[in-house]
Design a protein around this nucleic acid. Structure first.
Lengths: 229, 229
DNA sequence: TAGAATATATTGTCTATACATATTCCAAGT
DNA sequence: ACTTGGAATATGTATAGACAATATATTCTA
């Protein structure tokens, strides 16, 4: 009776669900399981690695595989590419550059980018539309020392969001989500009442330790980020 | 020159970053790459699968591997287990049951749970504290037909969040994040001004097609969900 | 020419084996 | 007791070979 790695993952998953193996327990070794399921060890390995990636198991060489003490569920989200997201909903995407200037980064920005010296950065503000309604307000800082060909790009047509996601690589990044009350400027630009609750997404990226860009995206009420578990 | 799958992933990743292979392009077959890197095909396979999981590549049998047209980054988030999250920050966790009743599910709830008939559900409201400050407001509906031993649990001590995450399995789930303006009730319970922007997390789960539970967690301003890319 | 059958290329997965690497455990020596 | 060193063990990964599954491309047939 030969098994597929998906089948084995499913069976192990069931044992975890049913409490046959409880949090903190050491489960049988790959060798033992490959014997039980009558398959190669590599197949068991594939299944267990998959469950470990999801955070249900913790594996250590020699120490064996144990059920995660606090099985923290993990969820994958797709980071929106604004144009694609709008067009996927059948609306026409439009983009408006509000501001583009070169200036010293304020404190909070250089902190977010982990900049030592207050470098001269490119600051961009832009609005993204879905049809005629504002979809997202973008506030971005770019490090011109790291981004090649930046001066060639006139951000009145291509959005910085798109340009950077498509062309500029990064090796590390941080992403955080939260909520923020709209201020007067937000309210006017996004065409919503003041005090509305905005969905906020912050992303910063680095290339080999050098800060590339940091951006805040603000979405008007009603926007949701969804995924399946 | 034998290679590791991580090394190959890194090299392929570099070629994507540097634009040697552009979005939409077909990249060489596993056989060709394993030849170039002088390693087994399985090793290349491991590397490419890893990149495909991250959304950078799209693979199809016979059709080959191509660079994702719109490389949508994906990010993994850890779903908070409230107690663990609070304690990890060094605060003491406290929990207060506000309401527990059995009633017919209102429209929006049965829609969210994809319930056909308006079943009799258990409705729970609770507050989670970090030290003395409210940390999260929980509003949950539970399907007693699916959750075993529900009547044995007195939710005044154990939070429903904890009980369900630890004991009740599910096979499918949905998760969505958003922002919402606080109303009078939220403001009072969370001890914040009205009109504050709350971070909202909705989770619903099913077990083999049967609805298990749906919950809304509301977090006061300042709460963020973070991850690294 | 259009549609159906067939060939073919590419990824998906399994097997068996081997060695690498990290970690635990125990025994020996101080 | 304490350290040190090695043996044992579980996972991590690489290899070669095989077959399966699935698109695509080609050829055949009506």
């Amino acid at each position: 009776m030969s098994q597929t790695w998906l089948g084995i993952r499913e069976e192990v998953h069931r044992r975890l669900r049913d409490g046959e193996w409880k949090p903190g327990d050491l489960i049988p070794s790959e060798a033992a399981l490959s014997d039980e399921f009558n398959c190669a060890r590599a197949t068991v390995n594939r299944a267990l690695q998959s469950l470990a990636e999801q955070g249900l198991l913790e594996r250590k060489r020699k120490a064996g595989t144990r059920v995660a003490a606090t099985p923290v569920p993990k969820a994958m989200f797709q980071i929106p590419l604004l144009r694609a997201e709008v067009e996927a909903r059948g609306s026409t995407y439009r983009y408006l550059l509000l501001k583009k200037s070169r200036r010293k980064a304020p404190r909070n920005i250089s902190a977010r980018m982990k900049l030592e010296s207050a470098a001269n950065l490119l600051h961009i503000k832009a609005l993204h539309f879905s049809g005629d309604t504002p979809y997202c307000l973008e506030d971005r800082w770019i490090n011109p020392d790291v981004v090649d060909g930046l001066s060639d790009v006139d951000f009145s047509q291509t959005s910085a969001n798109e340009f950077l996601l498509r062309n500029i690589p990064y090796t590390q990044g941080e992403l955080s989500l939260g909520a923020r009350e709209a201020n007067a400027e937000h309210a006017e630009l996004l065409d919503i009442p003041e005090t509305s609750a905005l969905f906020e997404m912050n992303r910063s990226t680095w290339l080999d330790g050098l800060p590339v860009t940091t951006v805040t995206l603000l979405f008007p009420p009603g926007y949701t980020l969804s995924t399946t578990l």
